[in-house]
Design a protein around this nucleic acid. Structure first.
Lengths: 198, 198, 198, 198
DNA sequence: TCTTAAACGAGACGGTACGTCTAGTCTTCTA
DNA sequence: TAGAAGACTAGACGTACCGTCTCGTTTAAGA
């Protein structure tokens, strides 16, 4: 009878979970300390106490390491406040995204990944699939439900509405022309729902 | 007031305008062809038929070269449609930005510069001062006038409104999750002005 | 006196003779095919269908594996033609050495070992003890007997005479400036015994 | 009119003679200190205060660097004692070769090069052309003259005679089974010229 | 027959050198 | 004196092999 445990426990020495974590963490630390140019493979390996070959064995590029770092950091940040009303729920989502990006390494990490995405389609794809997609899906679902309830206009373009709620957060992160503060989420939601017209 | 003396004509051989243009153009071409990793200083110098030292003599970094490339490409794209009404004027502005980014090298150029901005504050500053600032100022002025006319609500946050109009364009450029098409400008303006509420 | 207990037969699985042979043979094949740089431990293990750890368990270094390869190849090449006269016996010895080195892997093997001997005294020692020594001893004995018989001059330096008979074979093997052919053995012996003087 | 100075003084920065010497010297020192495994490209570059790229720019391999080192060390060791009689001249030649190899780095250098010659035909060729050839040519000429004078037998094989004079020196260098001392040269010449027969 | 223990294959690990590439700087000649 | 050519130092790149280390498996001796 077949063994049902899935990962097909191989014969050789198993992959070191300790090494995996040390690599991902070292990458994040270096990025936070010295920006993208400091997070070289060489430095990551040295900081993690790991051989470069070990990194290349499990990740095809620096971008891939950082992707894993980003997803590890933000594994449990998609919890959706179920009961809240639409306005509060949207503000909560945007506020959570801001909180995620404004401190810690997630902000620099995401900036580095957007840079890599320019020349590495795999990184771009992963960002869309695993970062952007889930967040947009939650909000899209909320908006769709609100339209169905008659709370929002029927001709609302959900894609674009999502952009208008989330895009400013990335925009301010990247250009740095305005702060990512508490007021932002409120203004984004209120202005979009109520409209600017007098 | 403009300085009329042609910038301190020194003793020796004057700076070659031919070289300047060749460098900036070569940088743009390489970026368009092979993305950021192809636009090395070495490759730019070779393509432009120029010595690397000449590039370093006039620009402090690759980012600075690309900044000049971006500004050269988009020198005359801030012409504002004076007479139009608010709605049309905003759509025209957003549409012009989309057109600028969607074809040619301005899109990749801007992505590269946002990456560099992460580790080079001078690039970040230049982007804010010379790219973002003028565009935001024009729209901010429009919005301010509309508020004064009583056309828009008095409590409108102009900064945030500008973000909600422009940020989605960069957002789609960087993540590539949705197209930068003609419909976008219209949806952005209409949804923001009218609001989403039924 | 020989120990008669077959080397402390322990409890566990006995050493695999099949593995030993596969390793030594693989090393020789790889050396013959791609020279020294091809005969890596990794490649030997792969070719032999053996784990690297198994090699390191029984040999301390690559040099040691190759030593065993050399001695295995040449186990029974010291048979001495008893009855022949001095001149014929010496020619037979040199000819046998040439034959050994000129085809098969013994030549490249010996070259590799001489290289290793430069940085590994154990290899140098083993080469002297087990390769050079026995061959020189046989010839030295022959020469000593001939001196005793009055056939050779009493002031002959046996060490140096041995060198003059054997060294040219290695010399041509290593530098490749002249062939290791049949004529060589005859010329070496005749010129040394008869002298060059007219 | 063409410039007659041969090396076509180019436009750019000229090759640094200081770097060339430092590299060759560092290679020799490292070889002397730690044998072949210590003379890595990395270590040579570090010791010479030179970038690895500079080494690879001028030499295709470590073997090529060492070849240049050997030839530099032994540039002026082919001076032939013209007037001496045959016996004395041969002893002088062999003694000079011994002196060259017995101290300093020439011995280890030559051993390293013979190892490389096994897998790099260019090194083998260079050794034959520039190391072995000149030395053998001088002795061959001497022997040829002696035959013409009737001092040596007419049927002497000059190639083989050269081997019998020189090969033992390399043989002892490589195997280390007997010293490279002053007596050797005398014995080699006397035994070969006079023959071993009583 | 069952236990025990050594040797085995597979293969991941930390380390180190490889040869290549790019960044910037420096030196020389030419325009 | 600017510019082109090109050699220079510095250091990261991704690859390969080293020798060591866990694993799970195999094989025979001893209980």
């Amino acid at each position: 009878m077949e063994n049902s445990t899935p990962p097909t426990r191989g014969r050789g020495r198993p992959r070191s979970e300790r090494a995996r974590q040390a690599i991902v963490q070292a990458a994040g630390e270096l990025l936070a300390e010295g920006g993208m140019p400091a997070a070289t493979m060489e430095a990551i390996a040295a900081r993690a106490g790991v051989s470069k070959a070990t990194i290349y064995k499990w990740w095809p590029s620096r971008g891939a390491v950082m992707l894993e770092g980003l997803f590890e950091l933000t594994r449990s940040t998609l919890d959706v406040p179920e009961g809240a009303d639409l306005r509060a729920a949207l503000k909560a989502h945007i506020g959570a995204l801001e909180a995620l990006l404004v401190d810690g390494v997630a902000g620099p990490l995401l900036r580095a990944l957007l840079a890599e995405a320019g020349s590495d389609p795999a990184v771009a794809e992963a960002l869309r699939e695993r970062w952007l997609g889930p967040r947009r899906a939650i909000v899209a679902e909320r908006l769709r439900a609100a339209i169905a309830r008659g709370e929002l206009r029927a001709d609302t373009d959900i894609e674009t509405a999502g952009d208008q709620l989330f895009a400013p957060v990335y925009y301010r992160l990247l250009f740095g022309h305005a702060p990512l503060d508490d007021a932002l989420a409120g203004q984004l939601v209120d202005q979009l729902l109520d409209g600017l017209l007098a």
